[in-house]
Structure formats: structure tokens, C-alpha cells
Design a binder for these strands. Structure first.
Length: 265
DNA sequence: GGAGTTGTTTAGGA
DNA sequence: TTCCTAAACAACTC
């Protein structure tokens, strides 16, 4: 279920292991998760390395180790990170276990849509430096947003917001939340967003990203009832603004909830 | 048992 | 070329 803030929440779950050596590496099954990685090098380089720190960008995570070792994690649809005791045997979907003296850092993923990346080098890995600018950075401007909406003039806005090359970290619930706040129909096309609407959309993208990071990433709390979030999957869910029954349909390839009253086509 | 799932990639059509 | 859609990936829950 991980989007921007959920990803950061899971990233920090490995924080207790910072400063500690990896004594052993266990990668179980799920070859798909480790695609592109040579198993021998992976085990050899990571074993004995010390976890130094981590950061997240959008839905991507980077873990920095001593010996110029870098580990990337993407959670896919069902990935998660945990910490278990040192002798934890590993469960069915626990694909990566990093053993430390007093704990085990675990990456689990039931559906195998996640991905582990790996690199050794003095410089940041290219798969990290090539990531798009974060939405809370100065590079994400109203002008850039408007230009992109024109380029994607025929796409439904829901699909546009899910484009990770432009809106890193935005997933299904955040896209619905943003469009609901900006009072834009998820099925409206990019070309229908005029300058004034683009400015509001930009503002709500910033708001939802910042709010999610503040509320969700701290302890995985749900956003409050004043947000669309708690209402969007509820049976008979209603718009927290006007009480109108929410619409639900597949838009841009994803199940979408919106308020027909305040987000008219 | 069938449908649906908060993600990404790819093939193929427009 | 560029853009857009649908399917595939895989396993669990309701």
C-alpha cells in the first residue's frame, strides 16, 4: 500500500540498524525481486558492510553502507520493511534478511512487485541520481506542471498524476485526494486545466504531499475525516465537503473515487 | 469461486 | 515519433 509517506515510514523502520554491521545476508526465493543483481557480488559486498543511513525519494528508497555499497528498495504494491530479532527464521514472503548482532532487517513482499537494487561505487548510483525532482523541491513549479498538462492534453488527470516521472511518490489514494481538493474531475483531460486551475492543482499537490508526510510517515496514522482518504473505500462513502455519495470507476487504469458534486466533468 | 487490490512495465494501437 | 490503453506480473482478502 505504499505511496510517498508510507514508503518513508517503512524506510525509517530500519533506523535501529544504522551504525551496525551486516553479519550475514539471506536472499530467499522471489528471484524477480532481485532482477539485474548478481547474487555472488551482492552477498560478498554487503556482508561486513555497516549501514550508515538512508533516504527516500518518491516511492524509492536508498540505503547507504560502508565500503561504497548502496542498496535500493522499491516496495511495489505489497512490500514492507520490518525489524525482527537476531535469530528470526524468516517467513514465507521475507525475501531479504540482513543479519546484525542484535536484530534482523527484513524486506517482505507477498506479491513480488517490489524490487531490490544494488550498486558499489564512490558516487551515488545512477538509478538514484536519475530520479525526477521531488514535488516539494523548487524545481516543481506551476509552469512545469502546466506545461506537462498540455503535453498530456488527452489523458485523464488521474492517469497524469500517477506518472512517476513527473509526480514521484503520488499513488492511487494521493491522486484521488489531490483532485478532490483541487475540485477537478479525475476524468477531465489535461487540456481542460486552465492557468487558474493549474495553480490550484499545484497548491494541492504540495498540500497533500506535505500533509501525508506529516500525518502518515510518522506512525502510519490515517489522514483525518476532513480528507477524502477515510471515505473513499467505505461502502456508501460520502464527500466530507458536501455529503454527496462518492462516485467510483476505473479511470486512467485505476479504481478512482471522486465527488460528482464538487468535481463535475 | 470470482472480483478486487494505495504499482510498474511492456506491447501494441492511435 | 509520441501518446495512450490494456494486459501482465502474483498472492492475498472479501
Amino acid at each position: 500500500m505504499p505511496e510517498l509517506a508510507e514508503v518513508d515510514f517503512f524506510r525509517r523502520r530500519w533506523d535501529p540498524g544504522v551504525g551496525q554491521i551486516i553479519l550475514a545476508v539471506e536472499a530467499h526465493g522471489g528471484k524477480r525481486i532481485f532482477r539485474g543483481i548478481a547474487p555472488g557480488v551482492f552477498h560478498r559486498q554487503l556482508t561486513g558492510a555497516k549501514l550508515l543511513g538512508s533516504e527516500s525519494r518518491g516511492k524509492q528508497m536508498l540505503f547507504r553502507f560502508s565500503r561504497n555499497v548502496w542498496l535500493g528498495v522499491h516496495l511495489g504494491m505489497t512490500g514492507e520493511m520490518r525489524v525482527e530479532r537476531a535469530d528470526f527464521p524468516g517467513g514465507n514472503h521475507d525475501h531479504l534478511l540482513l543479519r546484525q548482532r542484535t536484530r534482523t532487517l527484513v524486506f517482505a513482499d507477498a506479491r513480488l512487485f517490489g524490487r531490490i537494487r544494488f550498486d558499489v561505487g564512490a558516487a551515488l548510483p545512477s538509478w538514484w541520481t536519475r530520479l525526477p525532482p521531488p514535488l516539494d523541491s523548487a524545481e516543481f513549479t506551476v509552469e512545469a506542471l502546466a506545461a506537462f498538462l498540455q503535453r498530456r492534453s488527452r489523458s485523464p488527470l488521474k492517469g497524469v498524476l500517477l506518472d512517476q516521472s513527473r509526480f514521484p511518490g503520488v499513488g492511487n489514494w494521493m491522486a484521488d485526494e489531490i483532485l478532490w481538493r483541487a475540485r477537478l474531475s479525475p476524468s477531465a483531460r489535461g487540456a481542460q486545466v486552465d492557468a487558474r486551475a493549474a495553480k490550484l492543482l499545484w497548491k494541492e499537490i504540495r498540500f497533500v504531499c506535505a500533509g501525508a508526510m506529516r500525518i502518515v510517515s510518522k506512525d502510519y496514522s490515517d489522514p483525518p475525516k476532513s480528507w477524502l482518504f477515510p471515505h473513499r473505500w467505505a461502502k456508501g462513502g460520502r464527500c466530507p465537503r458536501d455529503g454527496v455519495l462518492l462516485g467510483r470507476a476505473t479511470i486512467g487504469g485505476r479504481t478512482t473515487a471522486w465527488c460528482p458534486q464538487c468535481q463535475p466533468d
